[in-house]
Design a protein around this nucleic acid. Structure first.
Lengths: 108, 108
DNA sequence: CTCGTTGGTAAGTTATAGCTTACCGTTAGC
DNA sequence: GCTAACGGTAAGCTATAACTTACCAACGAG
């Protein structure tokens, strides 16, 4: 259920902004924090959370810490989301439902 | 930025469980709340939040309130996620980056 | 009409997530 | 060696999200 983790981590707007900034490429913390409405330590904390969730990775370059995106960390979330449109799976669910219920309609 | 809203709403595990239960089809509140580790009013509150986020819809059937999934409510979130894998868009971003920076690598 | 069922809302409590400031370790330059 | 930039961590504050119980309105059945 790692998708739940990714969901929780990306729910915060500030943290999501941090994450999105890395779409443009790897960046040191200073560059990520520049212009954000929160302090630099706050950004550090967000980066830590993102890293623990596997959504970013970090490498040292001298005194800099360069953070970059880990798309892999989004995979489970994406698959979970995709599942809501999966026709075959949906058909299966409807079938199972028919056995249990008196049968109503289905949404949409 | 409705995807941010969907993210925030689905971040809570209990609320996500409520949401996922509706995958199997429309349900009255009682059925949704059955077996959950929280009280029935808590489920009502979650349903309200889900409804306001456009993730579920509600219709009355006698004394019952039947809730059902609104996949449309997930669309923006899905598109946002898909964007992370969009090759063309990524190429554009890299191009833009080249103009601003001294040029480092790109992740992965 | 009365009573049971369904479920929404109000009020209050509590845990915690996100922020701040202060501080410290590390590396680079002079 | 000394000093300045980078950035991680600690401690503490505060707003709020999720929950509870209590209550009430709406409809159905007898």
């Amino acid at each position: 259920m790692a998708y739940g983790n990714a969901l929780a981590v990306l729910a915060d707007p500030t943290r999501r902004t941090v994450f999105e900034r890395l779409r443009a490429g790897p960046r040191p913390v200073n560059a990520i924090a520049a212009g954000l409405p929160v302090s630099r330590p706050a950004v550090s904390q967000h980066l830590k959370v993102l890293k623990e969730a596997g959504l970013v990775e970090e490498r040292s370059e001298g005194v800099r810490r360069i953070y970059s995106l880990r798309r892999e960390g989004l995979r489970e979330l994406r698959e979970w989301l995709d599942g809501f449109w999966d026709v075959a799976l949906e058909a299966f669910r409807l079938e199972a439902e028919k056995s249990h219920m008196s049968g109503s309609g289905v949404d949409e």
